[in-house]
Simulated assay, not measured.
Amino acid sequence: MASTVARPQNVSHLVEPPQDLREMLELARFLENHESPALLLGPDGEQIPLPMQAYEVLRQVVSAMERGASVSIEPVDRRLTTQQAADLLGVSRNTLIRLLDEHELAFERLGDSRHRRLRLHDVLAYRERKNAERRSRLDEMTRQAVEDGLYDVDADTYKEVLAEARKN
Rank of each mutant, 00 (worst) to 15 (best):
M141A: 15
H115Q: 15
S3D: 05
L118P: 00
L162G: 02
E102H: 09
R109Q: 13
R29G: 12
H34G: 02
L110E: 15
R59C: 03
E147P: 00
L150F: 01
D112Y: 10
P51G: 08
A106E: 12
M24C: 15
P75M: 02
S12Y: 08
R114S: 15
P37C: 12
L27N: 07
R114G: 13
D148C: 09
P49F: 04
H115I: 13
E32K: 13
R78L: 01
Y126A: 07
L96H: 06
L162Q: 08
S70K: 05
A2Y: 03
E102K: 15
V123R: 01
A106Y: 07
D152Q: 11
Y126D: 09
A106V: 11
M1N: 00
Y158K: 00
V11W: 01
N94D: 15
R109M: 10
G90W: 06
R22I: 08
A64N: 04
H115T: 14
M52V: 11
L27Y: 09
R114C: 06
K167Q: 15
E140P: 00
E46W: 10
T142D: 13
S63N: 04
R29D: 11
L138P: 03
S63V: 01
P17I: 09
V153T: 06
M65E: 14
D139N: 14
H121T: 05
D154A: 01
R67H: 07
A132N: 11
A106P: 04
F30W: 14
T95Q: 15
R114A: 15
R7Y: 00
D20G: 07
L162Y: 07
E16V: 09
M24H: 06
Y151N: 05
H115A: 13
L25G: 02
A38D: 06
L39V: 13
V11G: 03
E56G: 05
Q144C: 12
V123S: 05
L118Y: 04
Q19P: 03
L105R: 00
S36C: 05
L100I: 15
L41K: 13
A69L: 12
M52W: 06
L88W: 01
F30Y: 15
R79K: 13
R119E: 10
S63T: 06
Q9Y: 02
A86F: 00
K130W: 08
T95G: 11
E147K: 05
L96F: 09
E133F: 10
L25Q: 08
K130M: 15
R79N: 04
S36R: 13
V76D: 08
L124P: 02
D77W: 03
A165G: 05
L124F: 07
R78E: 04
D20S: 13
R7F: 00
T82R: 03
T4S: 05
R129H: 09
D139L: 12
P49S: 10
A165T: 07
L80A: 03
